[in-house]
Write a protein that binds this DNA or RNA. Structure first.
Length: 725
DNA sequence: CTGGCAGCGATTTTT
DNA sequence: TCGCTGCCAG
């Protein structure tokens, strides 16, 4: 078989032009992923390249996984040796093996967003600055922006002209000190330090340059300056840098993504070959035309000429609901109607600007018993209980990690209050020691060796506080000793046992069970690293939890409607898409209203959402909406004003709809199942329940059927299951 | 030191 | 509406 079969001319060019820099401008639904996978396959199969000589950078871990899978289907076994991953994951690997050149500890921890914010708060505290006056979040953004442009605190100081910038400079300086003391690396450092490493160690850079003959960067429109510099460094030797992107789908400028990268690319590589992928394979003509109409209003863009051979399809449906409840109701009744046309719940997605909008939707879906899966929201690794346990593991792995120590020193509560913690930290800082070491010193002071150790100025603590601190120290010591021999799963169990974490959660109240379930989930992640030696297993576990955001894949087997933010929907497609909240202030979001560039990004966001739809697109707005407590009238989004009348039809929610809404009271699961139960399904026959997990007012059940159905994941509220005695 | 409560303020998107 | 902070009582 020929790899090039089934590609159109432009796609073929994108696959076969292998020498030199290549810029692929790919419209939505133009087969972009396919092109990337085929290009890699072509390099291997036709050009005879070893997969180890190829580096492919994706935007998400999920995209990386999908790419590997698709490549493996095309060329079985070839994906193993390929380097595929996000910039962050790639950099983490580089720094882990080469970081010592720039003074990085081998066991450095990776700090995520929340950790970063805590560091900023601590920095403010250390500098005697009031967080009320200087809100941490914007300061962190400023620091992050500086790092994304490779600015050290000293570089940043050059450009300081206002008092506020001076505050940022001071915080940034202290922030970096704290990072270094904790032997930690934040998200931005992963990228920045790698570039600095390559700059200062040409031989290290050279080894990577030589290895990677070809470099591919996906979602190039969402890269920031540092990421681009990195790609440039790596490709400097062979110049085989292929970047793929679509400026119209750039929606991450707030994360320092910089559209100039695309312009700079053409400037930095004058001999660049540019390929346009303009044929759309995804959407109906109506949908594509409407999306084009909407995006055409942006001034800062290169016009594209997208086209499709797909049928024109049905018109886009414009709906006005009274309020957000009716909006949700409309979506549900429409899904029900579509099901009569042969669509399934899993074919449908509801997209919105802000996560807060998911609430009214969720409530309605629960009330009407329509199955749904919520993407985003509070992510697994951001849950308090999960982060607590991870913090314990981090501390054991890296005793310098003051941030993690601060997090767990009184969790579960052991009588160490903020006052005591502050004293301890101040003392450690004064002595120039990591807090953990300071604690050990304190313990020795207790043994009456003060003179000898010259630590007379130890903080004067109440005996009770002192005892509490020693209790924590003993716990930490024991965990660290055991950590030398226990695999990461056993160590986690020891932590849970020694801290009485389960009891702590269950005492906390009604959500305790759910929280404990999350811990169990975390255990199963740890289990994947349990076969490794203690140190190594811990390291790989910690790294995977730091860099993987969405541990649970969007479950494709569940037949449920997807609720998702417009940002998170990028890269996905659905037969039916509802975009809700098409109102001024929501889309475009009110924070973007006073800035042309930001407004254009909002429009792109809208465009991204529209182009996810294959067959049916609904644009829904509410006449009244309560967002933060108060409710008020709304205005139609400027993005959907004056749409071509041949493409849309207007429908008012409330007339015949109401009747169609099934007022069946939530078929709330009456029976519950547990692993081991024997069950019967009306279609799949008899089987045994393998696993049950609670899922948002529902239960997800994994059943192993005796028949040919095999193993299935089912939603309790939806599946016709009954217990067999 | 902890836990409860009142008042306040601020609301985006996330690798 | 919610989540955080600060204050107060035990």
């Amino acid at each position: 078989m020929d790899i090039l079969d089934g590609l159109n001319d432009a796609q073929r060019e994108a696959v076969t032009v292998t020498q030199g820099p290549l810029l692929i401008l790919a419209g939505p639904g133009s087969g972009k992923t396919r092109v990337i996978v085929y290009r890699v396959a072509y390099l291997i199969k036709v050009c005879g390249l070893s997969p180890r000589r190829i580096l492919a950078v994706t935007f998400t871990n999920k995209a990386a996984r999908e790419m590997k899978e698709r490549l493996n289907q095309l060329l079985p076994g070839s994906a193993q040796e390929l380097t595929v991953g996000t910039f962050h994951a790639f950099c983490a690997r580089v720094l882990r093996t080469q970081g010592q050149h720039i003074g990085l500890d081998h066991n450095f921890v990776i700090y995520d967003d929340e950790d970063q914010l805590n560091l900023v708060k601590r920095s403010l505290l250390d500098l005697n600055l009031d967080p009320k006056h200087y809100p941490p979040r914007p300061i962190l953004s400023a620091i992050s922006a500086a790092k994304s442009q490779l600015q050290s605190p000293e570089d940043f100081a050059q450009g300081v002209s206002t008092y506020h910038q001076e505050v940022v400079r001071r915080v940034y300086t202290r922030y970096q000190e704290l990072l270094r003391e904790s032997k930690g690396v934040d998200f931005d450092d992963l990228l920045m330090q790698t570039v600095l490493l390559f700059q200062s160690q040409p031989s290290v850079l050279e080894s990577y340059q030589s290895r990677y003959l070809h470099i591919l960067v996906d979602e190039f429109q969402d890269t920031n300056i540092v990421q681009y510099l990195l790609a440039k460094q790596l490709a400097a030797k062979h110049q085989n840098l292929c970047v793929v992107g679509d400026p119209d789908q750039s929606i991450y400028s707030w994360r320092q993504a910089d559209l100039r990268n695309i312009l700079n690319f053409e400037k930095d590589y004058p001999q660049v070959r540019v390929v346009y992928l303009e044929q759309n394979y995804r959407s109906t003509q109506n949908i594509l035309q409407l999306a084009q109409h909407v995006i055409a209003s942006n001034q800062q863009r290169k016009p594209k000429n997208l086209w499709t051979l797909n049928p024109s399809g049905t018109p886009i449906t414009m709906v006005q609901a009274y309020n957000e409840d009716e909006e949700a109701q409309f979506v549900i009744s429409e899904v029900e109607r579509l099901m009569k046309d042969g669509f399934q719940p899993k074919d449908c997605a509801v997209m919105y600007r802000v996560n807060a909008q998911s609430r009214s939707l969720e409530e309605a879906f629960l009330r009407y018993g329509m199955p749904y899966k919520l993407v985003g929201g509070i992510r697994f690794y951001e849950r308090r209980e999960v982060k607590d346990i991870i913090a314990y593991l981090r501390l054991i792995h890296n005793p310098y990690d003051n941030l993690s120590l601060a997090r767990v020193i009184n969790v579960p509560g052991r009588g160490i209050g903020t006052r005591t913690v502050e004293q301890l930290f101040a003392w450690a800082r004064q002595k120039g020691l990591p807090v953990y070491t300071a604690l050990q010193l304190l313990a020795q002071a207790e043994e009456g060796r003060e003179e000898e150790l010259n630590i007379a100025q130890a903080p004067s603590l109440a005996p009770r506080s002192h005892r509490a601190l020693m209790g924590f120290l003993n716990l930490a010591n024991e965990l660290m000793t055991q950590g030398d021999t226990l695999d990461v799963l056993s160590l986690m169990d020891l932590i849970l046992e020694k801290t009485g974490y389960r009891e702590y959660l269950l005492e906390a109240g009604n959500e305790g069970e759910e929280r404990w379930d999350n811990i169990l989930e975390l255990r199963s992640v740890a289990r994947e690293h349990a076969h490794l030696p203690p140190q190594e297993g811990r390291a790989s576990f910690l790294e995977s939890v730091a860099l993987v955001s969405d541990q649970d894949e969007l479950d494709v087997t569940a037949n449920a409607v997807t609720l998702i933010t417009l940002h998170a929907a990028k890269g996905l497609e659905f037969p039916v898409v509802f975009i809700v909240g098409m109102e001024e202030g929501l889309l475009p979001h009110f924070r973007s209203l006073d800035d042309v560039a930001q407004l254009e990004e909002e429009r792109r966001l809208c465009y991204v959402g529209m182009t996810r739809a294959k067959k049916e697109l609904y644009l829904v707005r509410a006449l009244r909406r309560s967002l933060i407590g108060s409710s008020g009238p709304t205005l139609t989004s400027r993005f959907i004003k004056d749409l071509p009348s041949n493409l849309v039809r207007y429908r008012r929610e409330g007339e015949e709809r109401k009747v169609a809404v099934p007022s069946r009271p939530a078929p709330r699961p009456t029976t519950t199942f547990s692993a081991g139960d024997r069950v019967r399904h009306s279609r799949f026959g008899e089987g045994v329940v393998v696993n049950c997990t609670p899922a948002r007012g529902d239960q997800e059940i994994v059943v192993a059927f005796k028949g040919p159905a095999g193993i299935k994941k089912l939603l309790l509220s939806f599946a016709p299951l009954e217990k067999v005695p």
